[in-house]
């Protein structure tokens, strides 16, 4: 392996990597996503398999967090009832920017089997919080979780941090002047 053998001489023969600052920041952000797991139903049971050694969710650089303040993204796995929807919204508001949401399973995506007669079910968690990645399935296989995670990483890697900050500043200026 090229780079590892040359750690002793970092400035000789290809020891320097060139790239934009944004790329390197995003590379780091995409590979250390801490998550808040909001398990509600059978999708959360499937998520146990995802966390176990066979599928090993942690190799994506994810660490489960018990508090929304430390989490980068929230995983909604299961049926969102109207009673629980308010709690989810509160947790989402407590998370620090930048924050993302993965909606897992048919229930969280669109109400699933409760779409017609589920008087108590919120028909899709995207009605209360923004969702960045939808994972279909009832419940999804761990492979689908992996695919969702890769999609989220890809999204983070392509994100414009600095332009976004500038854009946010402009937006707040407009709000302040208005």
């Amino acid at each position: 392996m090229g780079l590892l053998n040359k750690l002793n001489q970092p400035y000789e023969a290809g020891g320097i990597i060139l790239g934009t600052f944004e790329d390197i920041l995003n590379w780091g952000r995409a590979r250390s996503d801490w998550y808040l797991h909001f398990g509600l139903a059978c999708c959360a049971i499937e998520f146990m398999a995802m966390n176990a050694s066979h599928f090993d969710f942690m190799r994506f650089g994810t660490i489960p967090r018990a508090t929304p303040r430390q989490a980068d993204f929230i995983m909604i796995t299961g049926t969102v009832t109207l009673k629980m929807a308010e709690r989810i919204k509160k947790l989402w508001e407590q998370m620090a920017e930048p924050k993302y949401c993965i909606s897992v399973g048919s229930c969280a995506n669109c109400g699933g089997p409760y779409w017609e007669h589920g008087y108590h079910v919120l028909k899709g968690v995207d009605r209360i919080i923004p969702v960045h990645v939808y994972v279909p399935g009832c419940p999804p296989r761990p492979e689908a979780f992996q695919d969702g995670m890769i999609k989220l990483q890809k999204m983070i890697k392509e994100e414009a941090i600095f332009r976004k900050r500038k854009k946010l500043e402009e937006e707040t200026k407009i709000e302040l002047s208005a």
Binding site: L82, A85, E86, G111, Y119, L122, K123, I128
Partner: peptide, 26 residues
């Protein structure tokens, strides 16, 4: 929830249009 209106398993129950500003029907 404590502030729910009506008894959902009655035959003549009609689901509410909104609950706490969240739309209930699909």
């Amino acid at each position: 929830p404590y502030d729910w209106e009506g008894y959902p398993l009655r035959k003549d129950y009609k689901e509410p249009e909104y609950y706490h500003e969240m739309k209930v029907p699909y």
